[in-house]
Amino acid sequence: MISIEGLSKYYTSKKNQIAAVDDLTLNIKEGEIFGVIGYSGAGKSTFLRLLNRLEEPSKGRIVIDQQEITALNSKRLRLARQEIGMVFQHFNLLWSRTVKDNIAFPLEIAGFSKAERDERVHELIELVGLSDREHAYPSQLSGGQKQRVGIARALANNPNVLLCDEATSALDPETTNAILDLLVNINEKLGLTIILITHEMHVIRKICNRVAVMENGKVVEQGDVLDVFLHPKQRVTKRFVEQVMGVDDEDDGVSHLIHTYDHGKILRLHFIGETTNQALISQVAKKFAIDINILQGKITQTQRGAYGTLFVQIEGENEEVNKAVTFISDETSVEVEVIRDAN
């Protein structure tokens, strides 16, 4: 769907040359939500702006939907841009236009008639949930509402691709979640491909299928979100995972647990998505004559299911306890590790 080969962008100042994006190669599949995460200055925005050539690439090739973006002349590029929606951190709405007219703007550019524009704008306002605000000016809207306008505007010309640069970074956590839900909703309903840039791992966790981690203009790690969460390889990636999962201070915690809970079996349960394990604890408690005591842990939800670890204490007859452990490790996707055997 989108293939990027050897994409580079150099900025030259008097003294030196910096590679904001450095020989970047990526493939993005149709219909997926692809996240790009990195710290400030990693080159994320530059990368995104290269995709619709708001920034001219120094080197490399970009193909979107079989169309080689890097080979287009300026007229064809303008037409191609109409098929690529873009959502901005600071919304970038025209303050002089109402919600309705802001959303109609890309349609004006594409040359639709007034009647066609009105109809399409109506649909879009409905889609993003702004039905009663269509005659308001941007200054009369909250941040979340502004971003809804921004998203509606980006979708106006039925693009196949949506580029989002820190679309939620100016919003509070609750509004962020609402906007992310809207993006997932759009992705499912319209089947468009979304490339989403962020420096917040929980955004990736919540809505992305795949993720690329950027550092110094390069992609240093990429893969399924769950895999990256489970097995972060690079130091940056580990730090991003810690953003969501907290710092890995388990080792301390474990010895503390062993001391505090001096009887029964202590297990570490590792949830790694795929199957739904919500009912695991109650299921085990019902099936076997044991007591389960939850000690500590952290579980988070990704697009592919739960991910995280949980420490539990199991008490009961030895035989029953062993049966329960076998059940969890054999019948569910949860990995079990015995921290301390019953004594």
Partner: peptide, 15 residues
């Protein structure tokens, strides 16, 4: 940013 948004929509300079 607004000018950039217009460019990203494929606007001509005249627009």
């Amino acid at each position: 940013g607004v000018i950039e948004a217009a460019k990203a929509m494929g606007a001509k300079t005249r627009t």
